[in-house]
Design a protein around this nucleic acid. Structure first.
Lengths: 189, 189
DNA sequence: CACTATTGAGACATACTTGTCTTATTTTTG
DNA sequence: CAAAAATAAGACAAGTATGTCTCAATAGTG
């Protein structure tokens, strides 16, 4: 297990990111495909990640970390609920690949701390409904879950039809759509 | 190739539907899993679909058919653009499993007639922007593509957390969110 | 009831993926 | 430059999925 040199750490990251990218579009892609995408031989792959499961575990940790960071940066308790919601959506779009991989996983393994975060988000959305910024007709469950569907669109649409919608436009449009949908007074968006 | 008796046709449908369901959540699931879900032996599976590709082809045709039917029923040229859009979204949600499987496919193979339908939908959305019913700040590309992301949410959220959001509620909330997001005047939704 | 269609169980060879290992080559570092 | 680290290439066995085939059992039909 190389853990000292900087070069080694660099290739490790390359393999990990290639893994996230490939597994996001094909969860059962051969490891050789991941190695190829990382520009590395299969031998080297196995030197950094003994198993397929080892890779998935590392990718999962990266995704959870990105998720936590996004939530922290969003500052869920500041401003109106809708403002916090907008910040959260924006932050999530900054860690797209890892989060997309995470959501396509079948077993998103329940993290104990993850549930607390879920509660914080639910509280933020409820605050939004109470302060009149978020549409009370939409359930908190729906709002918090549908964000992921939008992330999905933001990630894949520019990949599949880059000539029609670039990354930036997709982000922008998704954010507008999310805000209008969630707002109690969409005209203010 | 049994093609005469009704019983045979029935099991064929069962296998096909099981295939769509299983492959939607795991595109590389073993054929034995599909057979099991259909309540059929692997032998019988192969009797109706020689290949994995044969099954995928049949599923694709079913999906395309559902897609065409939905668009037809929606009556894209009637009423305002937003009204037509609402009808389209509603119709699409009636063929969820097949359409979900379709969108998770890597090679959605370009059908010549499919492109015409795409143009019709684009025309419908543009009409909506011109008649003032659809938000002109959202691109037609985004609106037409993001619908699929919402279908994704409507399909999967009730599967993963049925205790929090049922099929009916998910549909209702998705439709409201889609309308609010797309409308030029969301307060009218 | 007799006949036919449909199905289940299992054997079998093939192909692919996986994880481990060995050896030679390249790259990095002191 | 010389030693050490990192990598590529490939062999190998084990596991699994696949497609084909055969034969016996079951279900459906006239």
């Amino acid at each position: 297990m190389p853990e000292h040199t900087a070069a080694a750490e660099r290739t490790r990251r390359a393999v990990l990111e290639a893994g996230i990218e490939v597994l996001a579009s094909n969860p059962s892609a051969p490891l050789s495909e991941i190695a190829a995408k990382a520009g590395v031989s299969r031998s080297t792959f196995h030197r950094y990640f003994s198993d397929r499961s080892a890779l998935k575990k590392a990718a999962g940790e990266l995704a959870v970390e990105a998720w936590h960071t996004a939530v922290e940066r969003a500052g869920l308790t500041k401003g109106t609920g809708l403002e916090a919601y907008r910040r959260l959506c924006t932050e999530l779009m900054d860690s797209l690949p890892a989060l997309i991989w995470w959501m396509t996983q079948d077993a998103p393994e329940d993290h104990p701390e993850g549930e607390e975060i879920d509660r914080n988000i639910a509280a933020m959305l409820q605050r939004g409904q109470e302060d009149g910024s978020i549409d009370p007709q939409l359930s908190i469950e729906w709002i918090s879950n549908s964000v992921w569907a939008m992330l999905y669109a933001v990630y894949y649409i520019p990949i599949e039809t880059p000539e029609k919608l670039g990354r930036f436009e997709a982000r922008q449009q998704a954010l507008r759509a999310l805000m209008k949908a969630a707002a109690a007074d969409p005209s203010s968006v």
